[in-house]
Structures are given as structure tokens and as C-alpha cells.
């Protein structure tokens, strides 16, 4: 399992797409927001938590179809399925690898982008913490969506339709935590809920994802 994780990470780094594209997309969305809503600082402060979370979510979505598609095309996915490794473990590792290549960089970069949206100073730490807790859930849910649509040509668009509604609770609690942090309120409840969603996703979704993979490889 660790070897699989290492292989996926190595592939992502060598292909260069994983880190770079997601981050660049995140940056562009954050730049587009003020261009769309106007440069007023107070307004930007108000919408910054939500916009940062929505942008992170879209950036995570962007690279989801690569999770299984490459392995499916070159035939290594059926090999993984017949290997002694349980398919649930494969799905779990794929989710972890996706998080390490998109969620983690997004989390690290987000506070820097907060400046662009005039995020209130008390919220930076909560932005970082909420993304650190919440993005793994985004990756795992996305892995499930990718597993559902792996066999389809032009599955990417369909996958966004399937995955985005599943992202709703994560988005709500994540953005709410940052907003409360910005207002100086207690962030414990939304962060705990966020952690619950992440842990629940990692506990249960690998089974759903591997079930979907088995069906698609049949």
C-alpha cells in the first residue's frame, strides 16, 4: 500500500500536472473574484472565507478524473484489482495521494491568497486549519466519484455533477469555521463536524469506491 502511494506520488510529481495545475487554477479563481464583484475591501473581507473555500473545492475537483483514468487506460488498474492488495486499500491510497498532490498544496497556499481577498487577520489560522481538516474529505469523496465514472468516455463533466452535491456539507462547515474565525467566534463546532465528515469519508467511502471499481472492471 505504501509502495502504491509512493508510486502515485512519484507519477504525479514527474507528470507535473497535479501540483501545478490545481494551484494555478486556485490562484486564477481567487484573482477573478475581485474582478467580478469589484475591489471594495469591506465586501471582499465579507466574502473571502466562502470564496476561498469554493475555489479550493473547484481546484480539487479539477484533478479528480486523473485519479483512476490514467491507470485505467494503461491497464494497471485491473492489475491492481487482481493483486493481493485489497481494492479498498487501493481506493484509500488513491484518495491519500490525491490529497497529497492537491489538497495539501492548496492548504499551504490558501493563507497567501487570503491577502488578495483582504481576509480578516483573525481568520488566517482558521482558514489553514479548516482546509487541513476538510480537504482530505474532498479528495476521498472525489475518489468515490472518479471510481463511479472511470469506465466512461467524457466522464469528467458527469463526475462534477455527481461529486459537487456530495461536497455540500464539507463546504458549509469549512466556510462556516473560517467565517466564525473571522468574526472572533468559537470555531469548535464546525471544525468538529468537518473532522467527523473527513473521518467518516475515510472510513466508509473506500468501500463504496472499491465496489464501484469492481463493477466498472467487470
Amino acid at each position: 500500500m505504501i509502495a502504491l502511494l509512493k508510486r502515485d506520488l512519484a507519477l504525479a510529481v514527474r507528470a507535473g500536472g497535479g501540483f501545478g495545475l490545481g494551484l494555478a487554477f486556485f490562484l486564477i479563481v481567487i484573482v477573478l473574484v475581485p474582478l467580478g464583484v469589484g475591489p471594495e475591501a469591506a465586501l471582499l473581507t465579507l466574502i473571502a472565507p466562502g470564496m476561498l473555500w469554493v475555489a479550493a473545492l473547484l481546484a480539487a475537483l479539477l484533478s479528480l478524473d486523473r485519479i483512476f483514468a490514467l491507470d485505467f487506460e494503461d491497464g494497471s488498474l485491473p492489475l491492481l484489482a487482481t493483486s493481493p492488495l485489497p481494492l479498498e486499500g487501493v481506493a484509500l491510497m488513491k484518495g491519500v495521494a490525491h490529497w497529497a498532490t492537491t489538497g495539501l498544496p492548496l492548504t499551504l497556499a490558501a493563507p497567501a491568497l487570503g491577502f488578495l481577498l483582504n481576509l480578516s487577520s483573525t481568520a488566517y489560522v482558521w482558514l489553514f486549519v479548516s482546509l487541513a481538516i476538510g480537504t482530505p474529505a474532498l479528495s476521498m469523496i472525489g475518489t468515490f466519484g472518479a471510481a463511479l465514472t472511470v469506465g466512461l468516455r467524457r466522464g469528467g463533466l458527469l463526475m462534477s455533477l455527481l461529486v459537487l452535491p456530495l461536497y455540500v456539507p464539507t463546504l458549509i462547515f469549512g466556510a462556516e469555521a473560517v467565517r466564525r474565525g473571522a468574526d472572533g467566534l468559537s470555531t469548535t463546532t464546525p471544525l468538529l463536524m468537518l473532522a467527523g465528515i473527513t473521518l467518516g469519508s475515510f472510513a466508509l467511502l473506500p468501500f463504496a469506491a472499491s465496489a464501484a471499481l469492481r463493477v466498472n472492471l467487470r
Binding site: P165, V168, M193, L204
Partner: peptide, 13 residues
């Protein structure tokens, strides 16, 4: 499962 979660999340929000 996620629809139920969303229901609670939205209530909270």
C-alpha cells in the same frame, strides 16, 4: 448519507 448530512449542515448554517 450526504443528503442527510447536508440537511443538518444547512440547518446549522
Amino acid at each position: 448519507v450526504f443528503a442527510v448530512l447536508s440537511r443538518y449542515a444547512v440547518n446549522f448554517w
